[in-house]
Each structure stands twice: as C-alpha cells, then as structure tokens.
C-alpha cells in the first residue's frame, strides 16, 4: 500500500497508542490505537454511543475526558497531558457537532480568533475573513452572534470556515455531513478537501484528517485512505473505508465486526 519512498510521507505524524478514556466517571474508550501518516485522512464509522466523538474530544484535549491509559503523540511530541489550547496552537483543530452559542461574539470575530487575530477591528484581515466566508456560503452569517439561530447546515459550514482560518495540521471532523441538506453536501466535500489539501499531490500533502461519519455519505466527495469501525469504545476493524462501509450497509455493524475478528484473530 505504501508506494512512496519519501520519508516525510510514510512518517507517522499522529500516533494514538492503546488509549483508554473515561468521562463523567464512566469508562468509554478501551485500548484504542490509531495512526496517521503525514497527509492522511481516515474515517471512523460506528453506531451512536460507540465512542467516536469521545476519541476526537480526547485527541483535542477537552478536560472532562480523562486519559486513563495509553498516550497520544503528535508531530513527535507527546501531547497526552497538554491542555486544549496548547494542542490547538500546535495545529490540532476540531469542527464541533453542537457548538455553543456565544452571545456578543460574531462569526466574524470567531474567524479572526481562528486566524490568530485577537482584535475585533477587522482592518486588513477584513478581506480575508470575507473571502473565507464567501467560500462557504456564509457571508450572511458574518455579523450574527456565533451559532445563534444557525441551522444545522449553517453550523457545519461555519465550523469549516473557522477551521479553514485556523489551518490545523490535524483536523478532527465530527459528522461533517449530518444535518446538511443535499445540495450543500458537495460544498462541504469541497471545503473539507481544501482544508485537507486534497488538491495537492499526496507526496506534498501534510494536513491530516479524522472524519467521523454515520452514513459514509461524505466518502462520495472526500477520499480517505483508512477506515475504522468503532463499537463499544473499541476499534474493531481497520481497512479500506469503502469496503467497511459496504459491509456495514449490507450486514450491519455487528457482522462487520465479526468479519474483522475472523480475518485477524491477533487483534
């Protein structure tokens, strides 16, 4: 599968090792391992409540997710105990499933914050902000309080705009297509492709992505190299994302997991 000799290309840039995570006094993830090379995108499937979002939250560093075992290494640095904002500044970014409304903070301000601009004056950054917003068809939202009365699709697009401003090396995308109407799914696909530098040749691509998908619909627009299936807080299958999706569609999650255990009993 690895046809590239380029060192950078084959280097593991995100290494999640045997991670166990607890939240609210409940153990949620058990022994989860996941690796991404520079430029890679993976997609995680799994039913509701299987722990997919918890994994993203733990990688991002949200304080209520306690890592009880294992570690996370990002760009050669162990980040297991770094704070949320330190990780963000190192280049990890996340699109929120249900971001909070923050009254008095406009979407424009959030884009400025994501650009690393802490002043709200607009100024020279104004044009950059407007360009980003236009790209995601969110110009009309710029001066509204962030997430206040946003539709499901508007939230998704606004999150993408903020990530495009932030330009993280690793993007954690939680169900980017859910709640997005049919016409806008291709747009989300384009935005994700831009965020993950899909226009660049894989040898030159550095940005990485982990995408959670319920339906797999996003695979029609975004290529992912690896698929994972998560059940009950554990990764039970790793392979070609399209194959996993087909198996889930035809036989269901549990059957898909069985196939995995048959093929690789060493897991």
């Amino acid at each position: 599968m690895h046809n590239f000799t380029d060192r950078q290309r084959t280097k593991v840039m995100l290494d999640v090792n045997q991670l166990s995570v607890e939240a609210g006094g409940r153990s949620i993830l058990h022994d989860v391992s996941l690796h991404l090379n520079s430029g890679d995108t993976c997609i995680i499937f799994g039913p509701n409540g299987s722990g997919k979002t918890t994994l993203l939250m733990a990688i991002m560093g949200f304080p209520r997710y306690h890592i009880t075992q294992g570690n996370i290494v990002f760009h050669d640095r162990e980040i297991t105990h770094l704070s949320l904002d330190e990780r963000a500044r190192m280049g990890i970014g996340m699109s929120f499933q249900r971001p909070p409304v923050v009254r008095g903070i406009r979407m424009r301000d959030m884009i400025n914050v994501s650009l690393g601009e802490h002043s709200f004056d607009g100024g020279e950054e104004g044009a950059v902000v407007v360009n980003l917003a236009e790209k995601a068809n969110t110009t009309a939202l710029l001066d509204r309080d962030i997430n206040y009365g946003f539709s499901g699709g508007e939230i998704k697009r606004s999150e993408m705009v903020q990530l495009l401003a932030q330009q993280p090396g690793l993007s954690l995308l939680d169900e980017p297509e859910s709640g997005v109407d049919l016409v806008n799914v291709p747009l989300m696909g384009r935005l994700i492709n831009e965020l993950l530098e899909k226009h660049r040749h894989i040898r030159d691509r550095e940005r990485m992505g982990i995408i959670i998908s319920h339906t797999g619909r996003i695979l029609d627009y975004v290529n992912a190299r690896t698929g994972y299936l998560m059940l009950d807080g554990t990764i039970v299958c790793e392979g070609d994302p399209h194959e996993i999706l087909e198996t889930i569609k035809s036989r269901g999650y549990e059957e898909c997991a069985k196939c995995m255990s048959e093929k690789s009993p060493t897991q």
């Binding site: 949200f62 949320l84 904002d85 963000a88 929120f96 914050v113 690393g116 802490h118 932030q166």
Partner: peptide, 8 residues
Amino acid sequence: EYLMARGL
C-alpha cells in the same frame, strides 16, 4: 473551551 479549541 470553544474559543480555546481555536487557540486562545
């Protein structure tokens, strides 16, 4: 946390 996730 929302703002911290954007680097503040």
